[in-house]
């Protein structure tokens, strides 16, 4: 079985890659930075004694996405699981000053992700097998002033995955939407939080288990389901007054 990691240098994707490789699966690590992608691939190959390759992709080179998936499949065979984990999160305030940043956030996190998922889904539907694991975010559950460009893009991606899941169902293609809470990544490094921060390895364990059980959606860690239930249930007339 072959697993494609898109955004392989993200700690969550990298940990998911190690998890699949520990079960003996071949890995293709893709990242904007080809050298880093290759480093991730060598690391996975050496530690788990599996086949692994690395290469470049760019979420914004839409015209290249189809060819890119072809390249991946010629390197490691048909992609059985694609982990769509790339993303950017620039400062919200700077994005308000400079819409170029906001636009990039939306295009990378949503448009680019959707474009790559389409290229992958098409092939999986033809083969009547496969799984797409999309990393959304708890930030996509409700818009907040502190993070709404990122949140709206992740929320759009979640809705996209929902529709894709509906389309893929009759073709035996799984679409899993993962909504991580606080994970120990650059996004949370140095943050003081009341809610515990979990390691990328723990997240990877849960995600791989959920994918292999055929799940549709998940929060990681699980207790974020309850946190978000409360946050989503606050009436908008009250929510709009909160400084979140």
């Amino acid at each position: 079985m072959s697993v494609l990691l898109l955004g392989a240098t993200s700690p969550i994707a990298e940990a998911i890659g190690h998890r699949y490789a520990s079960q003996g699966h071949a890995i293709y690590a893709a990242s904007r930075d080809a050298d880093e992608a290759e480093a991730v691939a060598s690391d996975i190959a050496l530690r788990h004694d599996v086949e692994a390759a690395g290469g470049h992709f760019d979420a914004l080179e839409f015209d290249r996405h189809d060819d890119f998936v072809d390249e991946v499949e010629s390197a490691v065979g048909p992609v059985d699981v694609a982990v769509v984990a790339f993303g950017v999160m620039p400062d919200q305030k700077e994005s308000q000053e400079n819409f170029k940043l906001a636009r990039r956030t939306i295009e990378v996190n949503y448009t680019g992700a959707a474009s790559l998922c389409e290229a992958l889904a098409r092939r999986m539907i033809d083969r009547e097998t496969g799984a797409i694991v999309g990393i959304s975010s708890v930030a996509g559950d409700r818009g907040r002033q502190s993070n709404y460009f990122y949140g709206s893009a992740k929320g759009a991606f979640r809705l996209y995955l929902q529709g894709l899941r509906n389309r893929c169902f009759e073709h035996d293609v799984q679409v899993l939407c993962v909504k991580p809470g606080f994970v120990d990544t650059p996004m949370t490094f140095g943050m003081e939080t009341a809610i515990p921060i979990v390691s990328p390895e723990d997240v990877a364990d849960s995600v791989v288990r959920a994918q292999q059980k055929g799940k549709d959606t998940m929060y990681v860690p699980w207790f974020w389901a309850w946190i978000m239930l409360i946050i989503k249930s606050i009436p908008e007339p009250i929510f709009k007054r909160l400084s979140l």
């Binding site: 700690p11 480093a39 991730v40 060598s42 690391d43 050496l46 530690r47």
Partner: peptide, 19 residues
């Protein structure tokens, strides 16, 4: 701590390149 990838190993000679 996160710059911790193993990059290359030569099983003939035992040379290992790592971060």
């Amino acid at each position: 701590e996160r710059l911790d990838r193993m990059l290359e190993f030569d099983p003939e000679t035992g040379w290992l390149r790592v971060e």
